[in-house]
Nucleic acid binder design. Structure first.
Lengths: 227, 227, 227, 227
DNA sequence: AATGAATGAGCCTTCATTCAT
DNA sequence: GATGAATGAAGGCTCATTCAT
C-alpha cells in the first residue's frame, strides 16, 4: 500500500512538482490541496506536514519555478557581453521569449496570475528576481540611447521592448500555435521569427528616438546661441 | 430595516456596480456574494434573485464593464478617418491607453484575470469585442506597411504596437502613480507622455520594417535582372 | 401585461389546478410555490395571498382532488343496490380501479404520499372520506360471509379485496401501460381484465372462507352434541 | 470535544444507522444532514466525508436496509423446497409479512417513499432485489395454476397475493396495533392470523381460477368435437 | 515520520413569506 | 386587489487544517 520511499524528502519533491503543475494551470484559489496530494501520490495531510500551509507551498512552488526558469534560460540569451549592443539586445529578447514559451516553464503563468491576483507574498520574489532582469535591460537601453536620453525615455523604451515579449496574448498564441497547429517546426520557427521581428522593430524605435533627440539637441543649441 | 425601493432596477444597478468593483479587485473566486450584496446595500439573496447565480452576475458584470468602456473611449481616439495614418495610429494608441487607465474602467482587470484564469464563459465576449478592435489596428498597420508586407509581418507589427499599450505592468504603474504618488497631474501627464513615446517608437519600428522590405525588394529586382 | 380576469377567484381556481398537478407529481416538499404560480400564470405571492400558506393550499388541493374523484366515480360502480352481492362486489372493485386509474385523478398519489410522509393535516380527510368507503365494502363482505363470520374475518377479507385494487404497483403498471404502450384499448382493457380477475379471485377466497367456517361449524355442532 | 475513534468504519456505521432511522421516518427531503450527524455523534461534514453526498448516503442506506432485511427474513419463510406448494406459499406469505412488520426494518418505508417520490437512483435496487422475489412467487403460482394458465393469469394472481401482503394500510395497522394498543400479544398474533387468512383466501382464489379454466377447457373440447 | 479520519468555518443557493406600492 | 421586489433562514457541500495514532 505504501510507495517505497528511498528518502524522506522524496515526497516533498513530488508535492512540489504536482503543485507546480496544478497551481500554474488553475491558480491558487482553484487548486485544492487534495488534488495536489493525489497527483503526488501522498496523503491529504502531506502538504501541511511538509510545508505547513497551502500558502507556504504556493510561495515555495513559485520560487522553485522561477529559479528553475532562470537556470534554464540565462538572461543574456547566450550572447557574450563583449558583443555589440544590438546583438546583446537580440540575446535578451530571445531569452525572454524562450523562457516564456518553454513548455516546462510555469513561471510565466504564475506571474500572470500574480499580476491579476496578487497574493502579496510574492512581491518579494518579484523584487528579488524580476528587477535585476529589468535593470539589465535598462542598462542596455541606456547604452543604445546614449547619455543624452532622459531617464524617462530610457524607462519607456525598456517597457516597449519587454512588453512586446511579455504580452500574454503573444505567449498564448505561440503556445497554441505550437500545440494545436501541425505541431512541428511552426512552434519554434514562430518564436524565432517573432524574436527577429521584435529586434528589428525595437531597433527602429530606438533609432527614431535618437533622431528626435538629435533634433531637440539642435534646437536647444540654436536657442542657446540666440538668447 | 428595509431600504426604500424607489425603482425596480435600482438594486440591480447597485449590485452591478459593487460586483464590478469587487470582482475586478479580487477575482471571481475570492469574491463572495455576501460582500457584493453588503456593499450594494442589499440582501444576501439579492444576487440570486436578480441574476440567478454568481456566474451569471460575473458574466453580466464583465459584459457591462466592457461595453461601458467601449462607449466611453471610442477606439479611434477621436481622430477622423480622413486624417493621415500616423495621426490615426496616435488615436488608436491613445484610445487603448486611456481606456486602460480610466479609473472607472475595470475591463482591463477582468481581461487579465480571464487570461490567467479563464472561465470559458468569456471567450465569446473576447471574440465579439476584442477581435474587431484588433482588425481595426491590423488594417491601419497594413496601410502603413503597404501591400508588399506579408500577413505575418503585419500581424507581428500589430502585436508589437498593442503589446506596448496593454502591458499590465504599464497599467499598474500608471494606476499606482496616479493613486499613490502625489495624486495629481502625474497620472494623466504620464499617460500622454507614454502615448507619445509609443507612437514615436512604433513609427520608428515600422519605418525599419519598410526599409528592410525595400532592401529585399531591390535584391529581388537585381536577381530578376540577372537570372 | 395582465391577463384579463373575469372574476377575482379565477386565479384561485388556476392555482388549485396547477397545485393539484404538481403536488401529485412531486409531493409536498419538492413542489415550489414558484412553480405552481408560474403554471397558473399568477404572481409568486398569489399562493400566500389566496391561501395564506403553502400548507393550506396543499390541504385545500387534497380535499379538492378527493371530492372531485368521489364525484366522478360513484363507489358502487353504477351497480344497483338491488343487484346480487356478487354483482355489487364487481361494482365496488371496478369503482376503485377506475378511480385509481382515471388520468385526471390525483387523489391516489396524494394518498400514497400521505402514507409515506404523513403531514397530519390529512388524517381528518382520511377519516371523513375513506372510512365510509371501507364501511360500505365491509358491509358487503359481511353480507357475503354471512352472520357466522367473526369481525376479524370480515375485516381481513375486506383488506384482501381492497388491497388487490389499491396496490400502487398495479396502479403504476396500468398507468404506464396506458401512457407508453400503444396508448389505446390496452389501458382500459387491462383494467377491466384485472377487475374480472380480482372479482373471480376474491369470490374464490370468500368461498374458501365459507367452507372453512362450515367445517368449524360442524365440528362445533359435534362437540355440542357430545359434551 | 472529539469522540475517541476506535475504528475507521465505526463512524460510518453510526451514520448509516442514524440515516436509516431518520430517512425512514421523514423521507429524503425532510431529513437534514445535520440531524443525521447529530444523532450519529459526528460532525456536520461527516456525511460528505464518508459518503460523498446526501444522495449517496441515501442510496447506501436503502441498500443496507434492504440487504439486512433479506438476511433476517429468508424469502421462503423457512419452508423447505420439498414441501407441497401450499406450504411453500404459506412460507412466502409469512416471509413478506414478517419482513414488513419487523420493527427493525425500514425497508418497507423506503419503498413506500420511493413509489410515491421516486428518486430514480433506486430503480436499480428494485430491479436487483425485488424482481427475484417476484419471480420466485410467480414460479410458485405457475406451479399451483398448472401449465394451462396464461401468463397474464399467473401475473394477475401473483399480484393478488403479494398485494394482500404489501398493502401499506395493513402494515400500518399492524404496526400501530403492536405499538399503541395493549402492546402485547396482539402484534405478533395479528400477523400470524392475517398470514393464515391470506393463505386461505388466496388458495380459494386460485381454486376458483382453476375451476374457471377447467370449464373453458371443457367448452373447448366440446367445440373441438363439433366443428 | 506519516497517515487518514475528523473538524468547523464559510460559501452558494433555494424558497416560503412579507412589504411597499 | 394584486404585484414583484426583497428578505432571511436554512441546507448541502467544499476544503484547509488538526488530531490521534
Amino acid at each position: 500500500m505504501k510507495i517505497p520511499r528511498e528518502g524522506a524528502a522524496k515526497t516533498r519533491q513530488s508535492l512540489l512538482v504536482a503543485a507546480s503543475e496544478i497551481f500554474a494551470e488553475k491558480g491558487y484559489r482553484d487548486t485544492t490541496i487534495a488534488e495536489i496530494c493525489e497527483r503526488a501520490g501522498a496523503n491529504v495531510a502531506a502538504v501541511n506536514y511538509h510545508f505547513g500551509s497551502k500558502q507556504t507551498l504556493y510561495a515555495e512552488t513559485w520560487r522553485h519555478a522561477f529559479s528553475e526558469s532562470t537556470k534554464a534560460h540565462p538572461p543574456d540569451g547566450g550572447v557574450s557581453s563583449d558583443a555589440p549592443p544590438e546583438e546583446r539586445l537580440r540575446g535578451q529578447i530571445t531569452a525572454i521569449l524562450q523562457r516564456l514559451t518553454d513548455k516546462n516553464n510555469r513561471e510565466f503563468w504564475f506571474m500572470q496570475r500574480e499580476m491579476a491576483n496578487p497574493t502579496g507574498l510574492l512581491e518579494e520574489v518579484l523584487r528579488e528576481e524580476i528587477h535585476p532582469l529589468h535593470r539589465r535591460t535598462t542598462a542596455l537601453v541606456r547604452e543604445l540611447l546614449g547619455p543624452l536620453a532622459t531617464d524617462r525615455e530610457v524607462n519607456f523604451c525598456e517597457i516597449s521592448i519587454v512588453s512586446q515579449c511579455m504580452n500574454p496574448a503573444v505567449a498564448r498564441k505561440i503556445r497554441e500555435a505550437g500545440s494545436t497547429a501541425q505541431d512541428g517546426p511552426l512552434g519554434i520557427d514562430d518564436v524565432e521569427a517573432y524574436a527577429d521581428h521584435v529586434l528589428k522593430f525595437s531597433l527602429g524605435g530606438i533609432r527614431a528616438l535618437l533622431e528626435a533627440m538629435g533634433k531637440k539637441q539642435k534646437v536647444r543649441k540654436k536657442l542657446r546661441k540666440q538668447p
